[in-house]
Design a binder for these strands. Sequence first.
DNA 1: CCTTGGTATGGAATCGTTCCCATATCGACC
DNA 2: GGTCGATATGGGAACGATTCCATACCAAGG
Lengths: 326, 326
Amino acid sequence: MNINEIARMAGVSRATVSRYLNDGYVSEEKRDAIRKVIERTGYVPSSQAQTLRTGKTKLVGVIMPKINSESVGRMVAGISEVLKDSGYQIILANTDNHEAEEVKYLKVLAEDQVDGIILIGTVFTPSHLKVMRDLRVPLVILGQSLEGYSCVYDDDYHSMLEMARLVLTHSHRPAFLGVTEKDESAGAARAKAFSDACAEAGIELPKGAMNSGEFTIDSGYSMAERVLRRIPDVDAFVCATDNIAAGAMACLRDQGRSVPGEVQVTGVGDSRLAHVVTPTLTTLHYYYRTSGAEAAKLLVSMMAGEDVVSREIKMGFDVVRGGSTL
Amino acid sequence: MNINEIARMAGVSRATVSRYLNDGYVSEEKRDAIRKVIERTGYVPSSQAQTLRTGKTKLVGVIMPKINSESVGRMVAGISEVLKDSGYQIILANTDNHEAEEVKYLKVLAEDQVDGIILIGTVFTPSHLKVMRDLRVPLVILGQSLEGYSCVYDDDYHSMLEMARLVLTHSHRPAFLGVTEKDESAGAARAKAFSDACAEAGIELPKGAMNSGEFTIDSGYSMAERVLRRIPDVDAFVCATDNIAAGAMACLRDQGRSVPGEVQVTGVGDSRLAHVVTPTLTTLHYYYRTSGAEAAKLLVSMMAGEDVVSREIKMGFDVVRGGSTL
DNA sequence: CCTTGGTATGGAATCGTTCCCATATCGACC
DNA sequence: GGTCGATATGGGAACGATTCCATACCAAGG
């Protein structure tokens, strides 16, 4: 069942059916005739042929470092919410934190497949930049800020600064449990905010106070273990993610240290985890879902050809006070 | 840059280039010539044109009830792992637990867009069955079992039976916190297993012992609250998901009841949550990632045309003992 | 020597749309 | 009355591949 059949059955030309389906100039009678035939046959235009002819796929590629992560999940939920209404489908590319995969997908997707790309990136290597420069479809970066590109990101620095200040009102021997500094946002920015806050409070950080690991609970556990060995009188764990904080709390529990009495703990992300640990976790709420939605909106307008001067959207944040701080 | 250009530059016909790209019969010399031109120009065949001509999209649709859920995330990770290697891309459809959306996506995706579909379903309505019956692409159902379709699912009944038996060795006033029975797997099967285990142990369940709510922590909290009012001497909460169990534990904590001393608690899913609550949660480990991978493998072979007699794969499980049971 | 089958190649049709162009009618306006 | 713009319609050329078919060469086998 194709457009020719429909045209024949409705007694009009193929071109008229096409016009009926898209925009202009079809008389009332023919319009009726075509509508009837289409209803009766349940005809749906082949999106593949449309794609070939128009060069528009109505697909958006979302490249993400890890599908089963709560923050990414929330972002994608926001993206999907917006794109659904704009008639776009999401095509998913999961890189499992493998930078090379990220570059590969950028290339493959842009080749043909999609009208636009949202990159939930972590680390930008030179080959990232190269591929991104000669991309032929609009790109929005989510979760990181990068000069010259449209991006939606969280205020990692100031939010962590505020969190650190809060902790430091009752802490003199704090330690930081973070992730790789190659990650500008979750890594470098949060670490810098922490050490700036310490400097501001006149605290000199001992060796071993700044740590870097993975985004996992296990990594949080082992970093905490290590700090407790090297700085036995540590009195606060400021963590770069809720996962890490949860790991740290597990470690403290196992070693019989009370939270927040002996050691305060804070996380980032306001994940479900934060609300079920005992005591509940003081954490930073980032508007992940909303930032996903904003990124999608931005991309939609870019794909519509409005020459959005590459925009940056910095999201707000809230400090969520749980029982893990004084 | 299209196949004609390449053909011209290599001094061969378009057909020969196409044969070079696909299978047979190209002489060594021409093969070399074509390869050189392709390397130099970086030519990549238009997948849209290929799709139009061959009818194969190299896309697989994955319909899921909720993207930011840990179990779904794990399943999708498994799917993506397998499909990546088979040259398929994933196209994502998030229904946000809206059954009508599920049906809509089944229709839309099958229309044209994808070579196969994996449905991570929850509830099957008559309109589901109707659409699924006249689908023109292979379908694999993940997480539920449905007569006549290929499916990969967990042994909800027997795993919960085992869990309930474990709890009942030290409990005489247990309650069940579940989800809607319209969900055959997570709802009906787990609830039945629980009541069967109780019957087996000679326990008569009081009114209010069987509960049904949402898949959320909050819902777990309020269900627990309600049971504590109606059955004050309840001594175990057997929950249909870890989220619900986490909510129940939060409620018990708030009401000053000790776990597992006064009330035992169990979950299902072996989520990260289960390991960070205090005490850690006794839960059922389901092989979500593996089941996603299995579903994908099944679909790949179906798409390859091997007439797989619609197969069922029932996954195994483990009981993970945490501190929340005696 | 003629047939047969494997190897190799190009021409042309095809997939199902969109959209440019040519054409036509009709009322309005100078 | 001729020109002009708006409305309406169909013919046909793309879009960029795959694939059927015809053709041709060459070695082997009877």
